[in-house]
Design a binder for these strands. Structure first.
Lengths: 405, 405
DNA sequence: GATACTTAATTAAATAAATTAATTAAGTTC
DNA sequence: GAACTTAATTAATTTATTTAATTAAGTATC
């Protein structure tokens, strides 16, 4: 059975979580309101709030407005009482940042990755940069309670191992073990699409739903699936490998060897391939000029920029991509029927071109009277980074099972 | 937030559930073992077991074997202390059954459906048959604690309304309201693919996993998705409409209007269509003889029977269907990566022909080192019916939030 | 502007149900 | 048959909630 044993500890932990998140989500709220919202008694709320205040997680701020009786005392999260580290490992660079309890970035730096590198190089790169940033954070460094890492590829989040990172050409990097030994605070690692989804759930468009699918469409296509407020990992940590679901049995060959994968038709990579094909057929386009006749320089960003300038091929290509993305989304709707699907990653920059095509396909092809909302990522560029903070913050705020203080 | 408030009631309820299910799953177990398994203290187990015994849910049976001390007293579920009603609404018939707490059928009857019928006819059919069976159950009828109903189409399980039942050509049937008023016990309704999945989770192949996808492949294809031991409904109760996910953009037209839907290629209906096409092209086959030249009589069952007799076209058709099912399963693996996928419904009868093709496609096309198990339904014919019992039994055994006694 | 009412928050007493520790029950082993 | 084991129960303690009463700090009204 899945059920957990009831105990005083669990009871306390559940209620503490309720109170803490009531304060976090409402911004500034008096004890009486918390009691109403959580359905806890006023006495319980008082007790728990006292604890949270003594832990410095919560602050009494100004008094509120009386509604005919004693003034309420507004409570807020003490957002500078603790900090979290977030790391976003990309293809060519790694972004390091420190954020407060509201996931607001207070320090942010970037390191380039020089290929090729092995596991030791990679871990050394992380460790040394972290050491410097820890040091520079001065006496506040003791307030850093955890390190969250967003990483492409397949990640074993339980053991904190990057199982397969294709673009870095690395395997089985024991990140958690190494960094926890070095820094003595909890380290959490997660696949980047999953991290993005988590970021959107906590600080982006997903705050009012309990289930969502977040697409990360860049060179490839990955998805983060959140079910009942929790990331879904699947049996082998490879849930969300939606880029390799087949939508056209007789379609083009994908890098994985199969034919007609979603990402062989709808990704940034597919976009570039389509552009090159059209150009090789002699089609006139602004792209040719803008890439200075170096066709390998063409990428999604350039196509978007040319589309903005009215280049008809670029516009067409983006629209076609939008239609393919629409097919993939229709499949998600028919399979999981989530209340919300979020489109993130590089292509979401070109939303004015792709979104109409996406909506068109969804309207035409979804068979059920579906109310799934489809939107573009709210967090944008910083999505994975904010998600990385959230890996730690979500444990801090949902104290159950947490090893954080 | 999703979290629930902690309370004494919750604590008690959680532990009661743990103990009850420990007994249910283990068959015969002493208190000491329950304590070990659930990590509850012996004292708590004693208290809860006493309660369960006084409610007649649990029985002390024979003493167990001593391992060097006092003999343990074995506890079992008192399976005849309560009964549940299960109803499986098919296209042409409705199956009614009563089962004990082990989901063992003790009474089973079938009623034919005469088309066309309206909502009132349908409800009257259910009500009158239930009344008779209640009466015939004698004094034991007061032990029936709930009615579970498996129904094709889209079902609003919360409100107990069959929103859309295409084969009956009915809409918005308020089954729960009507039957609860008539019989005064809880009524639960669920889509048949979801019900099948629930049955497999509790009494079939899904007992050791917490997530699974169960395909119901008949004339169409539906899926029941179980995540963290719970049925997943999606936003509009249409999660699992996997038959209409697109796997071949340029494929044949589906009944829904789209092209290349999974079920336009892999269902019983698709199988028949393929057979007719081949026959119209003049292909010799045993099918022609066996249907007595009435081609409309050809169906999945006949094709299977001919395949058994060595008819090469029938074998080929089943293998092709298996390959298409394989594609759909690969998509499920790449999207959700569940530990288990169960194949149920009519075509699973022909497992010796389709299963090898399915495995072949999965091996060839799944990109991740996946450990998803793919098996054929354990419950077979009675799957949906057993699932219908489970709608009620699962609430009884997981007392949290239950309105059952 | 004194009295009555409201609302917020805390404190004190009562209660639920788990945990811990001690006891009883019923063996086995040498 | 004395010493040890294991199972199950009972009694005492503890945790944390709930209920009820109290204190705090207002507003409204005549």
């Amino acid at each position: 059975m899945s059920s957990v044993a009831g105990s005083f500890k669990l009871m306390k932990s559940l209620n503490r979580t309720l109170v803490l998140n009531s304060i976090r989500i409402n911004g500034a709220i008096p004890r009486s309101e918390i009691a109403k919202e959580t359905k806890l008694t006023a006495a319980t709320v008082t007790n728990i709030v006292n604890e949270l205040i003594s832990e410095e997680l919560v602050l009494e701020t100004k008094p509120g407005i009386s509604s005919g009786g004693r003034k309420p005392i507004l409570l807020t999260i003490n957002s500078k009482s603790r900090y979290v580290f977030g790391i976003d490992v990309g293809v060519n660079k790694i972004r390091f940042a420190i954020a407060d309890l509201e996931a607001k970035i207070v320090v942010k730096e970037t390191e380039k990755i020089f290929h090729p590198l092995n596991n030791e190089d990679f871990l050394e790169l992380l460790t040394s940069k972290l050491q410097i940033m820890f040091k520079n954070f001065g006496e506040k460094k003791s307030k850093i309670v955890g390190i969250g890492i967003a990483m492409h590829g397949i990640v074993d989040n339980k053991n904190g191992v990057a199982l397969l990172a294709p673009t870095l050409k690395l395997k089985n990097i024991p990140i958690k073990t190494v960094l926890e030994k070095e820094f003595g605070i909890p380290v959490r690692i997660e696949n980047d699409a999953k991290t993005l989804a988590l970021g959107e759930e906590w600080y982006g468009h997903g705050q009012s739903v309990k289930d969502l699918v977040c697409l990360n469409i860049g060179e490839g296509i990955g998805a983060g699936i959140i079910l009942n407020h929790k990331l879904f990992h699947g049996n082998d940590n490879s849930a969300g490998e939606i880029g390799h679901t087949i939508i056209d049995i007789n379609g083009p060959k994908c890098s994985c060897g199969n034919y007609g994968c979603f990402q062989s038709l709808a990704s940034g990579h597919a976009l570039k391939e389509s552009a090159l094909r059209e150009i090789s057929l002699g089609r006139t386009t602004l792209l040719r000029e803008k890439c200075h006749d170096k066709l390998e320089n063409i990428d999604g960003l350039l196509i978007y920029q040319c589309a903005l300038k009215g280049d008809s091929l670029s516009v067409e290509l983006l629209q076609k991509t939008g239609r393919y993305i629409g097919i993939g989304i229709v499949n998600i709707i028919h399979f999981l029927n989530p209340p919300l699907i979020i489109i993130g990653g590089g292509v979401s920059r070109a939303k004015e071109f792709i979104l109409p095509s996406i909506y068109e396909v969804i309207d035409a092809k979804s068979i059920t009277p579906n109310n799934t909302q489809v939107v573009v990522s709210k967090l944008g560029e910083d999505g994975s980074l904010i998600g990385a903070f959230t890996l730690v913050l979500s444990e801090l705020f949902n104290s159950i099972n947490s090893s954080l203080s």
